[in-house]
Amino acid sequence: MSKTEYLTTEELASRIRYDARTVRERLKDSVLLEGIHYIRPFGGRKILYMWEPIERDMGTQSGNQSFSIPMANGGRMNG
């Protein structure tokens, strides 16, 4: 059983090199989905992002420095 790595909004933003505000306002609920990419522990307001599904869905492969984020209109944003 693998251990899930949970990240705060700020930690995720730093890891994917986005502003935390962009994660909260543009990515959350459009490409980062509750129950798949993030949870609200104990039914509260705090959000914790799950790194493994986000990394998988960005298309990152082990050892590859480039990544892309699926966009709501079907395109991809490369980083």
Rank of each mutant, 00 (worst) to 15 (best):
W51G: 08
V23R: 04
T8W: 09
G35H: 04
L7R: 13
S14W: 01
A13H: 05
K46E: 07
T9W: 08
I54Y: 04
S66G: 08
F42E: 10
M71N: 04
P41L: 14
D57S: 05
G63E: 10
K28D: 02
M71G: 07
S66K: 07
M50Q: 06
Y6A: 15
R17A: 12
M58Y: 01
D57L: 01
K3D: 13
M71H: 07
R17N: 12
R15G: 13
Y49P: 06
L33M: 03
I69C: 06
T4K: 15
N64Y: 10
L32E: 01
R40W: 00
T8Y: 10
I69L: 01
Q65L: 12
K46M: 03
G44V: 11
Q65S: 14
W51E: 05
E34K: 07
L33G: 05
E11G: 05
R40K: 02
G79M: 08
L12S: 13
M50A: 09
E5M: 14
T22M: 05
W51S: 02
G44C: 15
N78A: 09
E52D: 11
D57K: 01
R26A: 15
E5Q: 15
G44L: 13
K28A: 10
R40A: 04
D19W: 06
L48I: 05
E10D: 12
R76M: 05
K3R: 13
Y18D: 11
L48D: 03
S14Q: 12
S14M: 06
M71E: 10
K3M: 13
L12A: 10
E34H: 08
S66M: 10
M1W: 11
G75V: 01
Y18A: 12
S14P: 01
D57Y: 02
A72K: 07
M58T: 02
E10K: 14
M50V: 08
S14C: 06
